[in-house]
Nucleic acid binder design. Structure first.
Lengths: 220, 220
DNA sequence: ATATTAGGTATACAACCGTTTACTGAAAAG
DNA sequence: CTTTTCAGTAAACGGTTGTATACCTAATAT
């Protein structure tokens, strides 16, 4: 294994990012100190400055990683829906897998949403807005394709995100095998929102007699 | 003005609570130090211990105040609904007034939901659960009385709370006169949830032709 | 082969932290 | 009037923080 200079630099940089993320899940990123992160990563506090200007700088880089996780979540959910249909169920399972497999990223997102510095908060909210925006597009496509347009896809997406993030936060505190109830609850709540946001009424007590077609609502 | 000893003690105790709350909105309660709170309240750090065991102790007392605020919010919302009907609209206006008039309390609730110590988090979640529980009861009463039972009042309440808290957090960042859009958005989202959680279908494109009565759903 | 570059170390600094200790002075109790 | 009580003060403690400085040394450039 060669020890090129830029290679080694990148390696300790990644080590800093990684240890900061790990420590942040235990006590909240905004309470981390430059010193403890540096030492936990195996370098001197002074060497920290060879990689980041300060802790906020590191934090914004971390948020970039979170951004990638969220994008992978959406890609994964779309793939699963394409494969099996049942959009709500499989999307929510994709989300729960995301929460469990990227617990650190998800926790960072939630924990610093109100907590961190101004730049931090702005970055997180921009990330969340983008996520909501992509979900909005997905909803529009899906329900347009079914001739069941939504009253207001953007509001629907906002409400869904509010709900899934709330439940996701709860899931973080539970071991994986105690989350089944959360999944059924989350599926039910998201379906509630979707039902209530449809422009065309559907009889709510039967599951998916779905092939009534081309019902375009008219005012009497 | 007499200077009784217990009176003076209570006064500085309140001053500590008040300044801790104010400072917490600027940088997050969990980042506050015992020293800065004490000095900002006008006493020596050592004197802090005459009132609270540590910062967490003070924080839990603060959460008691928040609890009271939430109860007043519910009481206020019920009163307004009793006076004028239009449950969703007036309840949401009550909530927005709560957010604006108790911004510090609301921000504490949101900010330390994931951030603070273990005891702190548990206290907040218990507070939130209680709030959801009371909302659940209100929903049950309201919709039973109208013969329009909800599929699952508890889930409905959870979803509504998730949405209103999300929007409330957004409202905190805006001046009061820029919140009209948030109000209409919030009303629409809550109505979506309620529509989708009703057991009896209603034609969604007409507002309140509400006196269809006694429609109890039967399975075929 | 030599000179330069640059990640990392060691150390020092002033500022702040939570907590303890001995003390003061005025209200309350006798 | 004397004694006791106790909220608040002043000072010190060991510890941690962010940051600046000088230095080392091995990979790179010449």
């Amino acid at each position: 294994m060669k020890d090129t200079r830029s290679g080694q630099k990148e390696r300790t940089r990644q080590k800093l990012i990684e240890t900061a993320l790990e420590l942040s899940t235990q006590k909240g990123y905004s309470t981390l100190s430059l010193r403890e992160v540096s030492i936990a990563a195996g370098i001197t506090p002074a060497a920290f400055y060879r990689h980041f200007r300060d802790m906020e700088d590191l934090g914004l880089v971390l948020l970039d990683e979170v951004s990638g996780s969220l994008r992978r979540l959406l890609r994964d959910a779309r793939r699963r829906v394409d494969e099996s249909g049942r959009a709500v169920e499989v999307s929510i399972h994709a989300f729960m897998d995301f929460v469990n497999n990227n617990a650190n990223h998800f926790q960072l997102l939630l924990g610093e949403r109100q907590g961190g510095s101004v730049a931090f908060r702005k970055a997180i909210h921009s990330e969340l807005d983008q996520f909501i925006g992509e979900l909005t597009e997905d909803l529009e496509k899906t329900y347009m394709g079914r001739n069941e347009p939504l009253r207001h896809p953007a509001y629907t997406a906002e409400a869904i995100v509010a709900v899934i993030f709330t439940v996701g936060a709860e899931a973080l505190t539970l071991p994986k095998h105690k989350q089944e109830h959360l999944v059924t609850r989350l599926i039910e709540e998201v379906k509630m929102i979707l039902r209530g946001s449809k422009l065309t009424p559907r009889t709510p007590n039967e599951k998916s007699l779905s092939k009534r077609k081309n019902v375009v609502p008219k005012r009497p």
